[in-house]
Amino acid sequence: MIIILFVLILWYGGLFFQSFFLHRYAAHQVFTMSKTMERITFILTWIFQGSSYLSAYGYGIMHRMHHAYTDTEKDPHSPSYDANVFAMMWKTKTIYQDINKQRIEVDARFTKNVPQWKAFDSFASSRFSRLLWISLYILFFAIFATAWWQWLLLPITFLMAPIHGVIINWFGHIYGYVNFKMKNTSKNLFRFDFLMMGEGYHNNHHKYASRANFGVKWYEIDLTYVIIKILDAVGLIQLKPIRVKD
């Protein structure tokens, strides 16, 4: 039971900071926060994503490119142009690293106001950091695993962020329903997104990219947005005014 709880904490904790910080803040800037709060969130993202930590700078820029080039050859991740999910993720990894290490030139429109903490990212993305988290996960399983099958969950802890990416960037463009007909293949994965905390409303998000709330229908409850509203209410972040048009 402890192992299941541990994996669930990593799943939803890592997913929340990917959605809240990397996606809605770094890429789309649907709310603002103080520099101190931003630095705290960098550290919390590292703690919960662990060995699969993603830089806000690399993720933010790559995601903006995804919206600008959705389902075209320039899209960093698209089932329409990648032979299989592994090819797509390898391509995504390469583009992400090239952006993060500034090995390629990026259009200025994609870099505007994207948060960056070079010193911390250098450490958090290092091989030492990733191996440290992997070692801690293995140690935790060695202490608390009570059945052989629980060890099958260990690889998930290593690759949590890429798994989240696969669910949205691959399956979220193949399976599901649409609320809005668009010039791309984005889908909503679930009527109630219990698995991805609102990220699964992918078709809605492509329609209204600057909205903090990814849900549109009454039953499309965006759990990340619920937390964002609470953080806004207590003054830790400041939601931007809702735009009439995107």
Rank of each mutant, 00 (worst) to 15 (best):
A161W: 03
V244W: 05
Y12M: 05
S19F: 09
N184E: 10
F6P: 06
Q238N: 14
W149F: 14
V30G: 07
K187M: 11
Y59N: 08
I138G: 06
F144L: 06
L195S: 05
K207G: 07
Y137N: 13
S135G: 15
I61K: 06
F120I: 03
I4N: 14
W148N: 10
T41W: 14
P79R: 04
V30T: 14
E199P: 00
H205D: 04
A119M: 13
Y225H: 08
P115K: 08
Y57G: 12
M196P: 02
T32N: 15
S34H: 09
I156A: 13
Y59F: 15
F123W: 09
Q97H: 13
Q150F: 03
L154R: 04
L223N: 02
T146P: 01
G235D: 07
W46Q: 08
G200P: 01
G215N: 10
G14F: 04
Y25E: 11
F110Q: 00
A147Q: 14
I228L: 15
W149A: 11
F140S: 07
Y69E: 13
F180E: 13
R109Y: 06
V216C: 05
F86W: 11
Y201R: 04
S34F: 07
I228Y: 04
N169F: 05
V216L: 07
N188V: 02
Y25S: 10
I61G: 05
S129A: 15
L136G: 07
L139M: 09
W170G: 06
A56M: 02
M196D: 08
A87E: 08
R103A: 08
A212T: 01
K181W: 05
K245I: 14
I2A: 12
I47N: 10
R211V: 03
H206K: 01
R211F: 15
D71G: 02
M182F: 00
F42M: 10
M33F: 00
I134K: 13
I174A: 03
P155L: 14
V114A: 15
F16R: 08
G198Q: 08
F141Y: 14
H206D: 12
A161I: 12
P115D: 15
H206S: 08
Q150A: 03
I3W: 06
F21C: 04
N179C: 12
H66N: 07
N204Y: 05
W46I: 07
H23F: 11
F194P: 00
V234Y: 03
A147C: 12
Q49W: 04
Y219Q: 15
I167P: 00
S126A: 07
S125F: 00
W11Y: 09
N203W: 06
K112N: 12
F123K: 05
E199V: 06
R103Y: 03
L8F: 12
M89T: 06
A147L: 04
K74G: 03
S126H: 00
K93T: 07
I227Q: 09
Y69L: 12
E105H: 04
W170K: 03
K112R: 13
Q29F: 01
D246I: 00
N204G: 10
L236M: 14
A161R: 01
P241V: 09
L15P: 03
I143P: 01
H66W: 07
I4S: 12
M88L: 10
R39H: 06
N184R: 01
Y201L: 03
L22N: 13
K74S: 09
H67G: 01
A161P: 02
L139G: 00
H164D: 04
L239I: 05
F128G: 10
L152N: 01
K187N: 01
I40M: 14
